[in-house]
Write a protein that binds this DNA or RNA. Structure first.
Length: 425
RNA sequence: GGAGAAGUGGCCGAGUUGGCUGAAGGCGCACGCCUGCUAAGCGUGUAUACGGUGUAGAGCCGUAUCGAGGGUUCAAAUCCCUCCUUCUCCGCCA
């Protein structure tokens, strides 16, 4: 949610900033609403002030047995008018809130201006693509052949875009998740959290999934509960409505959770394999940062995500999302893309964003600074550290051998119970 | 699921025969004094949002907020209704 004051003082700045993301927002519509709101408040408050001022006099006359009829009549008029004004004010405020809640965040000045993912600059590469003197296979081919994946039965159980893993494959995914959590908690200062996987509407609104993107979510019918699309949602809302201690910042949480996405509108995309599913596991990192240090925190968080791939020995590149490709709540985003030999392309495996005060304002997460009179909003950041399912894909495709077997990366061996290579039976 | 109790400011905690309570007191915090040695004492201050004014996040004025939302009333933290959450007992269960 954008700052109301900023909207009032610098509507042009807001308009221009949002235009960069290709979001044609009608700021004038908002300002019209706001003028009406102020007029309603002015009239209503003047009447309430009169009513409040008369209160003691009414009490006095009644106590003294004097006549207060005229005064009471006037109070009656005021109350009636105030009621009408308040009713309209409620409507106008709701319209204003709806408007604010559906407007995306403004990009940071350092974000490259662009229209689509084609305009995202590559910032750096890490690692060497594995040399393969054979035609590398895609992960689903490997996984099915080695008896670890069964998409047909997954479809029978639930439908398309679900997976079913057995044996080594299930274990490998668990190993990856464990490994990621261990690295983030022991090396990068993250506290592990197990949050609810189902949250309410308010929580979804706090991080920005609602009200605008309800069609992307799974909702439990007949309730106001939603399955989380990412642990960012419960983790970021942990301090909703609270004051944090400035001395505690930054607070870093990570969590391994399943993520549920309806994938509405993705028909025909990535229909095979583990890339795009309705349910997948992800280790998510969330930071509550001091506003003056949130962009440093974004770099640190991105590095924490990269570290996983470095330890696994999987090549990747980091790109900066341009203004036209950034998510709703972000001011700045880095994507990490792993190299997939089987697909012969880079695929997103992590997205790290600084949301500035956008989510903190929605969720009301603030802190006090000793020198300052007013509380300030914290800055929130979130990033995948990493998407477990896609990382499994990366391991399978990058560590495949000519004979169709898959070697286990050294970093994962301690988690695999002695298994060092997955071989065909 | 059934029966009770409760939800007040950063925290704890008064206040329910409606008006003088934004709200006693304590803690914490800030500043000052004193003392002078990592203690204690004394004083003052200390909610948030919005609106108006403006030296335009100084000050001042006003309105609202005592879990959330409705209602009664000239007027509600205080009365009524609905919902949420927490606690206790029973039931059920991983």
């Amino acid at each position: 949610m954008l700052d109301l004051k900023l909207m009032q003082k610098s509507p042009d700045l807001v308009r221009e900033s949002l235009a960069k993301r290709g979001s044609g927002v009608d700021v004038g519509e908002f300002l019209t609403l706001d003028e009406r709101r102020k007029a309603l408040i002015a009239e209503g408050e003047a009447l309430k002030a009169e009513r409040n001022a008369a209160g003691p006099e009414i009490a006095r006359r009644k106590k003294a047995g004097e006549d207060a009829a005229a005064l009471l009549a006037r109070m009656g008029e005021i109350s009636e008018r105030v009621k009408a004004l308040d009713a309209e004010l409620t409507e106008v405020e709701a319209a204003e809130r709806d408007w604010l809640l559906s407007v995306p965040n403004m990009p940071h000045e350092s974000v490259p201006v662009g229209a689509s993912e084609a305009d995202n600059p590559v910032l750096r590469h890490w690692g060497e693509k594995p040399v393969m003197d054979f035609a590398p296979k895609e992960h689903w081919e490997l996984g099915v052949a080695l008896g670890g994946l069964d998409f047909e039965r997954a479809a029978k159980l639930a439908g398309s875009r679900f997976s079913l893993s057995f044996g080594w494959c299930a274990r490998l995914e668990r190993a990856l998740a464990q490994f990621m959590l261990d690295v983030q908690t022991s090396q990068h200062g993250y506290t592990e959290v197990i949050p609810p996987y189902i949250v309410n509407r308010k929580t979804m609104t706090g991080t920005g999934q609602l009200p605008k993107f309800e069609e992307d979510l799974f909702r439990l019918e007949g309730t106001d509960y939603f399955l989380i699309p990412t642990a960012e949602v419960p983790l970021t809302n942990i301090f909703a409505g609270e004051f944090m201690d400035e001395a505690d910042l930054p607070v870093r949480f990570c969590a391994l959770t399943p993520c549920f996405r309806s994938e509405a509108g993705s028909y025909g995309k990535d229909t095979k394999g583990l890339i795009r599913l309705h349910q997948f596991h992800k280790v998510e990192m969330v930071n509550f940062a001091h506003p003056e240090r949130s962009y440093e925190a974004l770099e640190t968080m991105t590095a924490a995500a990269e570290k996983i791939l470095q330890l696994l020995g999987i090549p990747y590149r980091v790109i900066a999302l341009c203004t036209g490709d950034m998510g709703f709540g972000a001011t700045k985003t880095y994507d990490i893309e792993v190299w997939l030999p089987g697909q012969n392309q880079y695929r997103e495996i992590s997205s790290c964003s600084n949301c500035g005060d956008f989510q903190a304002r929605r969720a009301d997460i603030r802190f006090r600074s000793p020198g300052e009179k007013k509380p300030r909003y914290v800055h929130t950041l979130n990033g995948s550290g990493l998407a477990v399912g896609r990382c499994l894909v990366a391991v399978m495709e990058n560590f495949q051998q000519a004979d169709g077997s898959i070697a286990i990366p050294d970093a994962l061996k301690p988690y695999m119970g002695g298994i060092e290579i997955i071989e065909p039976r």
